[in-house]
């Protein structure tokens, strides 16, 4: 699948934003946040800014951004629509929280709003994951692990961000949380790679063309001698060797480096080290998301020379 940069940015940035939102709200409810006038608001603003930037960038990918509002209408069947609804719905409690915190008010509603925000954020990320996870046409996406990983990566990236922020106050628990979240995400991602490697949905070119399973098939001429929309969009594929290298980079940047940096940060220089961790994580996320697309094989490519999908 063609990795569209706007989509990569959208899913990674909004994932981190929603992750941060979740941890922020949970910490608030648990009363774990240091008492600082601007901390909750500032963090919330950052979380919403990331989420919003992501959402906005996803509309760049649309042919008609001005009609984007229409995407809210089909929540009964479409995960993309649900994602939009959930994202917008999350703005309500999160926005109220923001107002409360902006004006430094205290309200009994805060825990409720926090929990609602958490629910909204989790739902939004889940929907994002399900947009991909529900596509039966792409075996590498059509995995139960996919939405879970979307959640786990959102949680991990949110946690690392929170760890960086709270490191200013010298808090250690967020770093530990980040370690746990990263570890969990790493485990899931490894499980995912293991799951998709060498497996396919079992669709074959013979099925696509209605031939007996032992028929041999090769493309003589594609419909057009230059790539068409389908080949560009669905036919994008990264070579196996590249994929392996990129996986290493992704795992190193996304998990390896941040894990080490966070552990070291427990012993000092936390803000600086965690800043590095965030940067590495961002790079890793982008590579991971790029690979998520580039390793995905669409079943329609059976008509364009692929023998299995």
């Amino acid at each position: 699948m063609n990795p569209a940069y706007s989509v990569i940015f959208f899913t990674t940035a909004s994932g981190a934003g929603y992750g941060l939102l979740v941890w922020l709200c949970l910490a608030e409810v648990a009363g774990l946040l240091p008492d600082h006038r601007w901390l909750p608001f500032g963090t919330l603003a950052l979380a919403l800014a990331l989420a919003t930037a992501g959402l906005l960038s996803s509309t760049f990918h649309l042919g008609h951004p001005e009609r984007a509002w229409r995407a809210l209408s089909q929540w009964r069947s479409s995960w993309l629509s649900r994602e939009g609804v959930a994202a917008l719905a999350t703005y309500v409690p999160a926005g109220l929280l923001g107002l409360i915190w902006l004006f430094g008010l205290s309200s009994p509603l805060v825990p409720v709003l926090c929990l609602l925000s958490v629910a909204g954020a989790v739902a939004t990320v889940w929907c994002t994951g399900m947009i991909y996870g529900s596509l039966r046409t792409i075996h590498q996406w059509n995995q139960p692990l996919v939405p879970v990983i979307y959640l786990a990566l959102a949680a991990a990236s949110g946690a690392v961000l929170l760890a960086l922020i709270l490191s200013v106050w010298g808090l250690v628990w967020p770093a530990l949380l980040a370690l746990v979240a990263l570890g969990a995400a790493l485990a899931l991602k490894l499980a995912y790679f293991a799951r998709i490697d060498g497996s396919s949905a079992g669709y074959t070119v013979q099925m696509a063309l209605g031939l007996s399973p032992d028929a041999r098939v090769r493309v003589l001429d594609p419909p057009h001698s230059r790539p068409n929309f389908v080949m560009r969009e669905m036919g994008y594929q990264v070579g196996r060797r590249h994929a392996t290298r990129l996986r290493r980079i992704a795992l190193g940047a996304l998990f390896g480096a941040p894990l080490v940096l966070i552990v070291v940060s427990l012993f000092g220089f936390a803000p600086a080290l965690l800043t590095l961790a965030v940067l590495s994580l961002a790079l890793g996320l982008i590579v991971e998301r790029w690979l998520f697309f580039a390793e995905a094989r669409h079943v329609s490519m059976l008509y364009y020379g692929q023998s299995e999908a």
Partner: peptide, 15 residues
């Protein structure tokens, strides 16, 4: 009314 999100093209098994 189509917004051009291309999701449907991803969902179609036949391209």
């Amino acid at each position: 009314t189509c917004i051009g999100c291309k999701l449907c093209s991803w969902a179609c098994p036949y391209g």
